[in-house]
């Protein structure tokens, strides 16, 4: 337990280190989620349009 606490303290600079890593994680995760939502939304919209006109199969099904 002691060891764990001292590990997280990182020699007194824990807050800086963990905030850095946390921020990297958060920013990259948000970027990834936003990109995925962008792709999914556009895909559903495109599929919806293609269903209206079934003879134009330009969309590809479920490629993620």
């Amino acid at each position: 337990m002691e060891q764990l606490i001292s590990y997280f303290q990182m020699g007194g600079h824990g807050s800086f280190i963990w905030t850095s890593y946390g921020m990297v994680f958060v920013v990259l995760a948000v970027l990834w989620l936003q990109s995925r939502r962008f792709v999914r939304n556009s895909q559903t919209e495109l599929d919806g349009l293609a269903v209206d006109r079934p003879h134009c199969q330009t969309s590809k099904k479920n490629e993620t």
Binding site: S35, F38, V39, S42, L49, A50, S59
Partner: peptide
């Protein structure tokens, strides 16, 4: 990884606009 995802999204948007 993310770039390819985003390009796919952009291509979809292009198709949507064309349709």
């Amino acid at each position: 990884w993310v770039m390819l995802m985003r390009i796919r999204g952009e291509i979809n948007e292009g198709k949507i606009r064309a349709l």
